[in-house]
């Protein structure tokens, strides 16, 4: 029959490394395909534009129970998000995210990193985590932690040159990601050490 369609429940945001996904539990209607539509509202809309909502066309009448809202959560302010269900001509009420979402709460993971000893050159390859990310790379000669050096990497190019190494010494490296837009850093990656021995690198 035409019972009212329930609004989507368990609406939440999964946000990692400045990528934000709205998810919800499916609305079950036997033998029918349920479609969902998502809208967002920034702090600007709430305070200056009559609490208006903005549709996300990529998540309009979709069957998935997830929507990538990264492109629209593009300022460090509090956002509201909502989703509703449609089956044929039947439409549910809006289900709204409990509480606001601010990208400042995204979880930041340490960058994947590969340390390379290319002859006497200490190099590091860093994961491309997206345009919002910079990196702080710390490196030191093993046993000389007090003389740790730092390099800030603003844009991930293929490989970053850190230092010229002395033969027979071990060099260690660790890195953390930094997002200027929210002024937060990830924890440091695992430390990786390499050694130069007569021009051939050796993983330790």
């Amino acid at each position: 029959g035409d019972a009212l369609l329930p609004a989507p429940q368990n609406i939440s945001i999964l946000s990692t490394n400045m990528k934000h996904f709205l998810t919800w539990s499916p609305v079950i209607v036997q033998g029918e395909t349920v479609r969902y539509t998502v809208e967002f509202q920034g702090e600007y809309e709430r305070e200056y534009a009559n609490e208006s909502w903005i549709p996300i066309c990529e998540c309009s009448l979709i069957t998935a129970t997830m929507c990538n809202v990264t492109e629209d959560i593009s300022a460090t302010v509090a956002y509201n998000l909502r989703v509703r269900a449609d089956v044929g001509a039947r439409r549910s009420e809006w289900g709204t995210l409990k509480g606001f979402f601010n990208r400042i709460t995204t979880s930041l993971t340490p960058p994947l990193m590969k340390v390379i000893a290319d002859g006497y050159h200490l190099l590091v390859e860093l994961e491309d985590m997206g345009p919002a990310f910079q990196f702080c790379v710390l490196y030191w000669k093993k046993g000389q932690e007090s003389r740790m050096q730092q390099k800030v990497v603003k844009q991930v190019s293929s490989v970053v040159h850190l230092d010229t190494m002395e033969a027979g010494s071990d060099y260690c490296v660790k890195a953390q990601a930094y997002v200027e837009a929210i002024n937060r850093s990830s924890s440091f990656s695992q430390t990786q050490c390499v050694r130069v021995q007569g021009g051939t690198s050796m993983w330790l």
């Binding site: 967002f40 920034g42 702090e43 600007y44 809309e45 200056y48 903005i54 066309c57 300022a75 302010v77």
Partner: peptide
Amino acid sequence: DSFVNRKISSIANSFLS
């Protein structure tokens, strides 16, 4: 235009920040 409106929202919320 929905796309234009989304970008204006992005700019407006960044301005607010």
